[in-house]
């Protein structure tokens, strides 16, 4: 992250504003506690003792969309759930990102039928897709890191 330091006597670090903001955003991303189906159980294991996603600044899961900036769509989205999901997305404050976890959320998975939305990108714009049914916690963490990389590339004017 283009960090240049001039370690003079005062120990001043100069850095681009954009980089700092993006860095701060990746270090404290608050995901929304939004479990839909089986993948949500793996999302829970990711937060629990063995995988401990709080190492990546995700200590808190916020049940309220108003307080969160990352939506992890963990599970299959049904046609009945779709409007709810969109409403939750609309309620999240900017900047916000969406991570589609699992085959079902990404493309419908094994359920190619009348009830399931074939990919949550029909409803909300998705930043990172994670394959797997369910993805292992490591895969979810990898997806989160990929998102971090992406956030670090963002320009400030994208969100104003």
């Amino acid at each position: 992250m283009g960090l240049t330091s001039k370690l003079g006597e005062l120990g001043i670090v100069t850095v681009k504003l954009e980089d700092t903001v993006n860095w701060a955003r990746t270090r404290a991303m608050w995901p929304m506690l939004f479990g839909l189906a089986c993948c949500a159980i793996e999302m829970m294991s990711t937060q629990a003792s063995v995988y401990d996603v709080s190492r990546f600044g995700m200590e808190l899961m916020r049940p309220s969309p108003r307080q969160s900036d990352l939506m992890i769509v963990a599970g299959r989205v049904t046609r009945k759930m779709a409007p709810v999901l969109r409403q939750l997305y609309d309620q999240m404050p900017d900047p916000k990102w969406v991570l589609s976890m699992g085959d079902c959320a990404s493309c419908g998975g094994v359920f190619n039928n009348y009830a399931i939305v074939q990919g949550v990108d029909e409803i909300v714009p998705v930043d990172v897709y994670i394959a797997g049914c369910p993805p292992r916690p490591e895969q979810l963490i990898h997806g989160i890191m990929t998102l971090h990389e992406r956030v670090k590339q963002e320009r400030l004017e994208d969100w104003v």
């Binding site: 189906a37 299959r76 049904t78 094994v110 359920f111 039928n113 009830a115």
Partner: peptide
Amino acid sequence: GYLHTGIEKNMESKRYEQSIVMTDRMDY
């Protein structure tokens, strides 16, 4: 019904052995 996946209908279009994978995803 917010998680109605249509598993029963989907199983009707798969062979007996193929549809075992669907049952896992019911009570996960």
